[in-house]
Each structure stands twice: as C-alpha cells, then as structure tokens.
Nucleic acid binder design. Sequence first.
RNA 1: GCCGAUGUAGCUUAAUGGCAAAGCAAUGCUUUCGUAAAGCAGAGAUUCUGGGUUCAACUCCCAGCAUCGGCUCCA
Length: 593
Amino acid sequence: MEKLNKNSKINIIRHSLAHLLATSALEIDPEAKFGVGPIIKNGFYYDILFSGKVDESILEKLERRIKELVKQDIAFKSKKLTFAEANKFFKKQSFKLELIKDIKKFGTTKLQGQNDNPKNVESVKIYQSGDFVDLCEGPHIKTAKEINPNAVKLMKIAGAYWRGSEKNQMLTRIYGVAFETKKELNDYLSLLEESKKRDHKKLGPQLGLFMFHNTAPGMPYWLPKGVIVLNELINFWREEHLNRGYCEVKTPLINKRELYETSGHWEHYFENMFISKTAENETYALKPMNCPNAMVVFANQSRSYRELPLRIGDTDTLHRFEFSGTLNGLLRAREFSQDDAHIFITEEQIKDEYLRILEIVEKFYSIFNIEYSFRLGTRPEKFMGDKKSWDKAESDLKDILKSCGKKFEIFKGDGAFYGPKIDIVMKDALERDWQTGTIQLDFQIPKRFNLKYIDKDGREKIPVVIHRVIYGSLERFIGLLIEHFAGNFPLWLAPIQVVLIPINKNHLDEARKYSNELSKNNIRVEIYQPDETLSKRILLAEIQKIPYIGIIGDKEIKEEKIAVRKHGKGDLGVQIFTDFVKSLKDEINKKSI
RNA sequence: GCCGAUGUAGCUUAAUGGCAAAGCAAUGCUUUCGUAAAGCAGAGAUUCUGGGUUCAACUCCCAGCAUCGGCUCCA
C-alpha cells in the first residue's frame, strides 16, 4: 500500500471534500451517523449510516450540494475538546464515540493491535464545516474556495462494514475523486476508460481465449487459443522446474472427507469446499488445494534424508467455493489450476530453498517485465500449532527477505492456517492488487500426516514443507498478463503468431507453402483466405492482435520474399522469407517481450 | 455472503407503457483487390428466468439467477 502524504495541497483538498460530503449528507439526512472519511489515491470517501435506503441517485444530489458549499465559500474551523466535552458533543454519533474511546485508550483511532506504541492524549480535535462537525486531526483548507469545484466528482456508492469487520454494521461508503484542475480530472476519467479496455474479462472473449457460462459461475471454459497460452506457460514452468530438480505428479481431484479431516481443511476450510455425496452415501470433497495429496505421495514410501529436498510439483485443477460477490473473471475463479509444488526439507534447508525459489520468481517475472512486490503474511487468528514455532518461522522468513535485499511489507494475520508465507503481488488494469505467487512455510501439516524421513543418525524425523506457487493460479496469472500486455502477448505466448495474407487467389498456393514452412518451424500460423479485401484482412488480424502479418503477392513470390507487418508498428517492408522465419524463431526462443 | 448497479440477436448498441430497431459478425450471390472496414440479398429475438400490476410490459412492482463496482473473505 502506498503511503499518502496527508499534508500535500491536493490531499488537504481531498480530505476537506470528505468533510463537505458529510456536510451535504447531513443536510439531506439529519439522522445520518458518520463513520470515517479518509483520503485515498486520487480522492476520498466517507462511510455513512443513512436512516433509510440509499441508491446511486444520491451521488448527484450530494455532488451538487458540495459544489454549492464551495461557491458559498464556507469555512473550516477547528477546536480542541476534552474527552468529557467530546463525549457529550458526539453523544448521538455512536461511531465517533467509539473512535473517541480508542483515542483515549491508545492515542489513535487505528485498530487495536495495529498500533504498537500507545500514546497519551489529553484532548481531541474537531473541525466544523457548515453544520457538520467531525472528529479530525486535520489539516484542512481554510475556506471552501480553495477547492476547484470543476475538478471534483463523486464516483460510486458501496457498502462497507464499520471498521472492516463483517460482524459490524454495514455503512454506505461514498467514493469521490478530486484534483486541482478540471483537466486532471478529465485525464483521470479517460485513463479509467482506457484501463477498462484492457480488462481481461472483455479482451479474453474478444480474442477467443476463454468464456464463461451461467451454469458454471466462476469456472472458465478455455477456448483453443486460450489453451495455447495456458500450455505455453505450463511448458515453460515444466522446463524450468525439471531443470531445478523438481518432479511432477498428478493426484486425484476428489478425495474422501477423511483426507481433509487429517489435513485440517475440513475444520478450517469447509465453507469454501465443494462437497459431493455418492449413491452409497459416502462424502467426498473436490480438492481446494494440492497439499493433502502431496503429503500422501510423500508418505507412500520410506524416505531418506538423502532425498531431501524432495520437490514435488503439479498443475492439477482445483475447486474452491468462493462466495458469489467475490468472483472476478479469471482473477478470482472457483475452478483453477496452480503451478504448484510441495518441497520436503529439513529445518536447516529452509533458507537455501527459499533463496532458490526466489531466484525462480525473479526469472519468471522478469520474463514478462512485470513489477511485483512481496508481502510477508504472519500468524492468523485461526491457526494450527504452537505460537513458538510460528514466531521462529516468521523471523526466518523475515531474515530471508532481508538477506536477499527485497522490499517487502508485513501483513499481520495474513498467513495460512498452517504457517507464515511470502506472497507476490501484482496489479491489474485498474491498479488493484492481486496475489499471484506465494511461498508458504509449514511445520504443521507434515505432523498431522505423520510424515517421516530417516536421518543420518538412523532416527525418524519430521520434514518441513514449503508450499509454493510462482504464477500462483494459471487463470489469475493469465488474466493479469492479458491486462499487463493489453492483449498483445509476446510472440512466444501469442496463440497465432503469424497471419499470412495472399493478395488474391493466385497467391494462395504460395501462401500455403509459406505456411507449411512456418509450421515445420513450430510457428503458429493462419492463412486469411482472399475472400475479403486486403485492407479488411489486415484490419481483422490487427483486431486479433496477431504479432506478425505476412503479405504475399507477385512481387514477393518472385524473390521468395514476404512483406511483413508488425502489430503496433505497421509495415516493416519486404524481407527474405527464410530470414523472416529465422528472426521469428529467434524472438520465440529468447522469449522477447 | 453484504451494499449498489447492470442484463435486448454471436458482438456493440436503440426503443421511458402501444407492431422489438440498427451496425458489425455469420449465411448466399457478386467482387479477386498491394497495407486498418467492397456491393447486394435473405436470415437471425422466449428483451436473463419466474411471478405480479395493466386493455396493453423490454419498459412499472416482487422474487430468483448471472455479471460488474465496492465491503468482507482469499489456505
């Protein structure tokens, strides 16, 4: 998460707008109760509990009123109150009372547990704008004239739980954006429009990669072109991992519930599992992850310390019953596959193995020129095992991240129930964060499965397991790749790498020869038949974002040449056909971007 | 799951209570073309599903499903 500078001019304006939003809301609904109204990237929001039902139409009313308040140039006045005064003043504002209580106790409104150093505070500060008075540290503008009303827009309305907990009441969150100039606002809005064009949910079906169907919510249908991308990614994964001492297995997609009782998933993960019953009334569960079956594979034979690290990979299909409101195209699906591996090691091998995995991460992400960041997820509320081994594992991971010089953030309570983890995070077209890879340390599940290896001294020991994915889910990764490249895949991933366009039917035979030659060189090629005009066929190929278009007419045939167009670059001129093939192969082998 | 929005032909969109309309795609015929859309014709709709209001519903109301934007969750 980026830190926002709350003292910058524009953020002071945004923060003040949050207050004006509240001022307007209070006028519309005098019974409204107010939560918090912070700044966010490009704007602000306010969480409000309205006395009645609220829909989108309120945005226009509020926005109009905010602009009137700016025109009236209302002032922002601040004042300090003692806790007794504050409690009295906000007696009808239950959310504010709760915040005051926290300030008194911890010196901050940050949630308990997030603040390590409680401060002593004597009083609270309030700001008044119009009839609305807010508990607020500021800073704020002096008067509303400092706001450019033409550079403000209320964007959307959403439900948000008070203090981020679903146990609490849901408030109405109203989002707005604000800039210093109208041009900046318009630029932001058109950037948003442009970003939406890169949405994989739009581009994917347009490019024939995948589709969805109402009867399988959250479960993609991979179409022929999408399968090519999927397979290319898996091929790359397989090649890189076999070279690094991994092996590959396939294990059952559905197991009896006993397996998940042993692993702990039945207890910790039940509500996210697809469960099925046979005619004989036995309960099975579709696997939501591969680890239990990887444990079964490890336990299948007696294991020696000589085998460790034992790196067992797979790309099996997983099913997770994600709640309906959370689905998001390929980015959050109910059926997906992971480039998974479970690595069985001794405690001494943790650091080396993590460093090896981080090397793979660097290789995989640099190939796509993807910017990523790390998150360290620590012990969650629902966890397995003892606190002491968690603490050790967490500090081990911290040391590893520090020693390889990577920037990382700590996400408290974000670990898996069996161990802490390092996550890789990347952004989608709308700049939202998505976890892709994750490297999780696990001292618990091997114990539950009673896994053992025979050590040098002839004694049985319990292995440590690293659960790790690099792409994360192939589905999510492809979704993010589509948005990252705006559908313009690098040549090695492009479903169709070359489209050949014979100018008229006299050139069709020659185009077929060229096509065969390309196919022989493992280049994916299609011929666009001369039933349409040349221009039309070029347009069609460009819309499909085909990397190269080869045009073949009399001139080219005479000299065994081809007229080449590159997507995004236009006409590259005429090349000798064999040179063209060679350069394509080179580009594919290098996995150039 | 929660808050809000959306759902019309394969796709993009029109029709604000009175005969469901258009472009593209697909199909047939004509055209065989030198770098981002050739011409003509015919066809294509359970307006997401189910109820209700009304003489009359794509349009209004209720419920469900799916999708989207958020919240929560995300092993």
